[in-house]
């Protein structure tokens, strides 16, 4: 059952990403390009996506997931170095190629070799992340 739900959720996610145009890196870079031909599409995608999600969070209160277990607890609201530095690094990469992880997977099937190169580098980056975090710990402690 969990696998069926994962497939349906993934299909909605992938379908939404391509229909919204987020697999087109020019639209993502256009959103970030405030000093050029600014493209507001991404704000509509974000806003649209937050509507069903906000309803789902509201509905989840006092309930349990369909397949059992429990809903993810609210994270500790601490805003450490990792959140800020990690997000800045991610944002730089996002702007540089116009891709974030979801749309990269969604366009992997039709985007050609460039997408595979980006994904390979992203996976290496994910593997290297703990090492980078340790290196940062030696310079600036996390908290």
């Amino acid at each position: 059952m969990k696998n069926v739900i994962a497939l349906i959720a993934g299909m909605f996610f992938g379908g939404g990403l391509i229909i919204s145009g987020m697999t087109n890196t020019a639209k993502v870079q256009g959103w970030l390009d405030v000093f050029g031909a600014w493209d507001p599409t991404l704000a509509f995608v974000m806003g649209g996506a937050m509507i069903p999600m906000a309803l789902a969070w509201a509905y989840s209160r006092g309930r349990t997931p369909l397949t059992g277990g429990s809903f993810p607890a609210r994270p500790d609201p601490k805003l450490g170095r990792n959140l800020v530095v990690g997000s800045i690094m991610f944002g730089m990469g996002w702007g540089l190629a116009g891709l974030c992880p979801g749309p990269a997977i969604a366009s992997l099937g039709f985007g050609g070799a460039s997408l595979w190169i980006f994904i390979a580098a992203m996976l290496v980056g994910m593997l290297a992340a703990p090492k980078v975090r340790n290196a940062m710990d030696r310079v600036v402690p996390a908290e």
């Binding site: 059952m1 969990k2 739900i5 994962a6 349906i8 959720a9 993934g10 299909m11 909605f12 996610f13 379908g15 939404g16 990403l17 391509i18 229909i19 919204s20 145009g21 987020m22 599409t41 991404l42 704000a43 509509f44 995608v45 974000m46 806003g47 649209g48 996506a49 937050m50 509507i51 069903p52 999600m53 309803l55 789902a56 969070w57 509905y59 989840s60 349990t64 997931p65 369909l66 397949t67 059992g68 277990g69 429990s70 809903f71 993810p72």
Partner: peptide, 20 residues
């Protein structure tokens, strides 16, 4: 963008309410 966004959010809602 809005339609795609709603689909993305629906996916997230299904994943959350279904699998937690």
């Amino acid at each position: 963008g809005l339609i795609g966004g709603l689909l993305i959010g629906t996916g997230g809602a299904i994943y959350l309410l279904g699998n937690g």
